[in-house]
Design a protein around this nucleic acid. Structure first.
Length: 358
DNA sequence: AACAGTCTCAACCGCCTCGAG
DNA sequence: TCTCGAGGCGGTTGAGACTGT
């Protein structure tokens, strides 16, 4: 027996949504709430299939959706979670308040994935690519390959890693806007987002390194999420003020009938996925310990659901073997380099803002 | 200015999961 | 326990914007 196709019917419209259609859908959901998607098109006077309506709402029209550039912290979270969970976009998106799985997926495919490949890292396994690294990354002086994990470890452990051997850092924080600051719309004037292009000038290896130094920020983010304070709080840490500025500015109660559920949703998933025994509020939080324990938690979960490589997160950080006896030593070596603020592209005590980056 | 190539991301497709009956 | 349908999810596509020549 074959399943009946979701969207069968004459005259169903496909393709980009118009402003008029958006208005109809928003108006209907505002009045009647979500659910019953199959019936919504008819009731709302739309020539669309229910599934299309649900996607349009969930990925674009829903009020509590944050659009635009991904922050540095968001990138870090995506990379970390992808390393431990793989292409579980909905799971990853749950850790990024107001981001949709589709947006996370797109951002991974168009930005982060390429960055990893450029650095000779397999985006699937987060381990160094087996074959010869991308020549584009083997451009350091004296023929050193900065994408080579052995080089990374060697240099970091000796404390001699110089920024000159690293490509220019590249998170969205220091991506340089090249063009198109004007309001460019698509879809015949529908509510499309601004389109931005950025000059690629970064190194994912370095990005991964920075994960370590920004652990406290992640901790703050997680803590804030768990406490439900992301939604309305105005006492977030400086960098988070920017990350979630739209959140705090958004008057969810004006429209969103689901505000409580969305807040609770985030909190529940954070509690579910993060070990709450961590002292995440501690500014001196030991990231290496965090990585180790978080990895173990994720590995257990992965095993329970069928097995994503349990060494991924640890190997991701150590960049080399999975010799666990040496992992902490490697991380310590990294930390020596990483805490060198002279190389850190922004002031962690200030708001996240392009102007704060080199 | 025109064209071709590249990039981005909204939207679609089809399979999967889960709950109701 | 089985069937069915609604909703969820991840992979893919293609229109349009952008860049380079």
């Amino acid at each position: 027996m074959s399943r009946k196709p979701c969207c069968v019917g004459e005259g169903l419209k496909k393709g980009a949504w118009t402003t008029e259609e958006d208005k109809k859908l928003i108006s209907y959901i505002h009045e009647h709430g979500e659910g019953g998607w199959r019936d919504i098109p008819q009731k709302a006077g739309l020539k669309r299939c229910g599934k299309s309506c649900r996607l349009r709402w969930a990925n674009y029209l829903k009020p509590d959706i944050k659009r635009g550039e991904f922050s540095y912290e968001e990138e870090q979270i995506i990379i970390m979670l992808h390393a431990s969970r793989g292409n579980k976009w909905s799971v990853i998106a749950r850790h990024l308040p107001k981001r949709t799985d589709n947006e996370v997926k797109n951002y991974w495919n168009t930005h982060l994935k390429k960055r990893l490949i450029d650095q000779g890292i397999d985006p699937l396994t987060h381990k160094p690519l087996a074959s010869s690294p991308n020549p584009a990354t083997t451009r350091t002086s004296e023929g050193q390959d900065d994408s080579n994990p052995s080089n990374l470890d060697e240099q970091s452990q000796s404390g001699s890693m110089s920024p000159k051997y690293l490509p220019i850092s590249s998170s969205s924080c220091n991506l340089q806007k090249m063009s198109n600051s004007d309001e460019t719309t698509r879809n015949n004037g529908s509510l499309s987002s601004k389109k931005c292009r950025f000059k690629k000038s970064s190194s994912t290896s370095k990005l991964l390194n920075k994960v370590a130094t920004k652990a406290s920020s992640i901790g703050n983010m997680v803590s804030a999420s768990v406490e439900g304070s992301l939604i309305r709080s105005t006492i977030l840490s400086p960098c988070l003020n920017d990350v979630f500025s739209e959140t705090s500015q958004f008057q969810m109660d004006e429209f969103d009938p689901f505000s409580h559920s969305s807040e609770q949703h985030i909190t529940d998933h954070m509690k579910e996925d993060i070990n709450m025994d961590f002292d995440l509020k501690n500014s001196e939080f030991d990231f290496s310990q965090f990585i180790e324990q978080f990895s173990n938690i994720e590995a257990e979960k992965a095993n329970a659901i069928g097995g994503y490589n349990q060494d991924l997160l640890l190997s991701d950080v150590s960049s080399t073997s999975v010799d666990e006896d040496n992992i902490m030593q490697n991380i310590t070596g990294w930390s020596n380099y990483l805490v060198d603020d002279s190389d850190f592209p922004y002031d962690t005590n200030q708001d996240f803002d392009d102007k704060n980056f080199i």
